[in-house]
Design a protein around this nucleic acid. Structure first.
Lengths: 157, 157
DNA sequence: ACTTGACTTGAAGTTGACTTCAACTTTAAG
DNA sequence: CTTAAAGTTGAAGTCAACTTCAAGTCAAGT
């Protein structure tokens, strides 16, 4: 089997790009699992790498860890997830990204029409009117995300 | 003059959409100023409303408060800022938004090419490869922002 | 057996942008 | 003058997603 847990935490850290402390945190949060040696050290299955890849992709799309945990619940427990499983649960990310893009475009267009007048009026300018901006950015009522994504850029150092 | 400070904190809160606690915080952080009554209560000039509109717009675009403070330093101190002043300092926000949009579109396109294969491979898939994603999202080397923006939507309740 | 590097834990710290709290004071209306 | 609403302060709390720390344990090579 390749469900044999053989990877140490530092190997998983290196190959996934997550810090070892993050892996411990994810385990506490119920996002990944690890077997233990007799002495209590973690040993990971190779499949954890795909799971971590999914987590990273989801985080890049802007999901919170809570949301990632929810999505992961949709995977089959009895067998190793297939490519089709991963595809299925990440399919709706596209809408999320589309919404985020649309929100930003709306904001940019608002800026374009605002910048000519320098108004920034609380009453009429959609750039600074709290209600207008909120409304244009959150079309579907649910929260729209994308925080970690862009900060994550500095990880590449 | 209309530099006469007459607005109470609750009036400014209502008209700006910021919570009173946020106004106090902004004052501590040096983003806005307020005169005081004999008894120590805040009294704001009407011009603070435009300043707060600018702050909200900047926050919506994704600037941190540190960055907002920097931008505000570019305003003239000796006179009340004109529309042209506000326009001047908000002009480069467009590039920032364009960059953010481009980053998201790149991410979406990566998702499109990934979702067909369900790979999410750490080696080859740009969705989950930490370096690739970082590189594609931060083209100009500087940080790209946009966190508060989308959470801000819930303010409208 | 020894040494060294990797690993373990719980608790506490970090960041940014605020909010909340407790205790007290000021202001404005009546 | 009284009273209620609104204001004041510093300190502490919140949230998410981790990181850092201290103090100790394990694994593997020689």
């Amino acid at each position: 089997m390749d469900t044999n847990p053989v990877l140490t935490v530092s190997e998983v850290a290196r190959r996934s790009g997550f810090a070892a402390s993050a892996l411990r945190y994810y385990e506490r949060e119920g996002l990944v699992r690890a077997a233990r040696t007799g002495g209590g050290q973690r040993r990971y299955q190779r499949t954890v790498l795909r799971r971590l890849a999914f987590i990273r992709a989801a985080r890049n799309v802007g999901l919170t860890l809570d949301e990632v945990r929810e999505e992961l619940k949709r995977l089959p427990e009895s067998r190793t997830p297939t490519k089709a499983d991963w595809t299925r649960i990440s399919r709706n990310w596209r809408h999320r990204l589309d919404d985020q893009i649309a929100a930003l475009q709306a904001l940019r267009d608002g800026l374009d029409s605002c910048i000519g007048c320098g108004c920034l009026s609380l009453q009429s300018c959609s750039m600074s009117n709290p209600d207008d901006v909120a409304a244009s950015l959150v079309p579907s009522g649910g929260a729209v995300f994308l925080p970690a994504l862009l900060r994550r850029g500095t990880d590449a150092d």
